[in-house]
């Protein structure tokens, strides 16, 4: 099953399980079914719950927050995650704060879905990975879609938490298969973290959000076959707040740790993860946690220029080698 189908099933389950669950966004209606087809078929099955909207990212996110305030479940799709900047006020200053700023806990079941990332030649305003701008907002959970985490379980968890969530969906994942890893490796899932590994203890632990899974696996394959360097990949589903314990447990045994993400340089999620690991493993780690990310740059449109800027398999490969020096 493709990741986009799994996501579609997750959305379907939410809508089917609760008549007071709503899905809002631009161009969601069938036969189009949304720009990336995650919502295909849903407006036909749940016409009263799937709402197509004007091009009004701020308002529709606010409407989602209003529904959540009244006890409903609201899922808002921002067509390209880049446009979440238009909804930043509603997410940061209203939805997330409302959970606690009135002195009592206000449950808010609001999920803002954000198709994210580059690699498709969509250019500087349609290719960004804006996760870092949502790290450390009190009351807000940050999740990322992963081919190793069943979206049905992830959505159930986000809704059960009754806190607003932003859910980043790397666009390159939509057409990839769920739960498929390179046959050199095996994988398992514990405490919300997917672990991809071989039977030997790792030289390096790579920590990456779901969208980077395939690039990390490709780098791991090359490192193993060409240099006999053993890596373990850890993919958390919730990026923030970060549960460091399962990462610490694995990182403790390795010679180095690399955090890889597509975000541009500066103020990254990886820096936050590195800080958490340094606190727990100071004196244990042999090297500082290394960061792999995209360049400090806008994301160009032309394929050859875009490739020179974005995090690639090679960026991860080279960062791992560097971290083991």
């Amino acid at each position: 099953m493709r990741v986009v189908e799994n996501l579609n099933h997750a959305l379907r389950e939410v809508l089917a399980g609760n008549p007071r669950a709503f899905l809002l966004g631009e161009d969601l209606l069938d036969p189009y079914g949304g720009a990336f087809k995650a919502t295909r078929g849903l407006s036909t099955s749940f016409p009263a719950q799937v709402v197509t909207t004007p091009i009004s990212e701020s308002a529709i996110t606010g409407v989602g927050a209003g529904l959540a305030l009244c006890g409903d479940t609201a899922i808002v799709e921002i067509m390209f995650g880049d446009f979440v900047t238009l909804a930043f006020d509603q997410i940061v200053n209203f939805a997330a704060k409302s959970v606690s700023m009135y002195g009592t806990r206000v449950p808010m079941r609001l999920i803002v879905r954000l198709p994210t990332g580059g690699g498709r030649g969509y250019g500087p305003t349609h290719s960004q990975s804006l996760q870092k701008h949502f790290i450390g907002v009190p009351g807000l959970d940050v999740y990322e879609m992963s081919p190793l985490h069943d979206n049905r379980a992830v959505f159930a968890q986000m809704i059960a938490a009754e806190r607003p969530c932003v859910f980043f969906e790397d666009k390159v994942l939509y057409t990839k298969r769920m739960h498929e890893v390179d046959d050199l490796f095996t994988w398992d899932l514990a405490d919300g973290v997917a672990r991809v590994h071989v039977d030997t203890p790792p030289d390096c632990v790579i920590i990456a959000p779901g969208g980077v899974t395939h690039r990390a696996l490709a780098a791991m394959r090359r490192l193993l076959l060409e240099q006999e360097i053993v890596c373990t990949l850890l993919v958390p589903s919730r990026l923030h707040p970060l549960d460091a314990a399962p990462l610490v447990a694995v990182a403790r045994e390795a010679r180095s740790v690399v955090v890889a993400e597509e975000s541009t340089a500066g103020g990254t999620w990886g820096a936050e993860v590195a800080h958490a690991l340094h606190r727990e493993l100071w004196g244990v780690l042999r090297n500082p946690v290394a960061l792999a990310h995209s360049a400090d740059s806008i994301i160009p449109t032309a394929g050859h220029l875009e490739r020179a800027v974005l995090l690639t398999e090679t960026t991860i490969h080279d960062t791992v080698l560097e971290s083991l020096k």
Partner: peptide
């Protein structure tokens, strides 16, 4: 097309 002679070097593309 991201070729030599591009108005903005192929960075912006069709809409920038």
């Amino acid at each position: 097309m991201g070729r030599e002679g591009a108005v903005c070097g192929g960075v912006g593309g069709s809409q920038h």
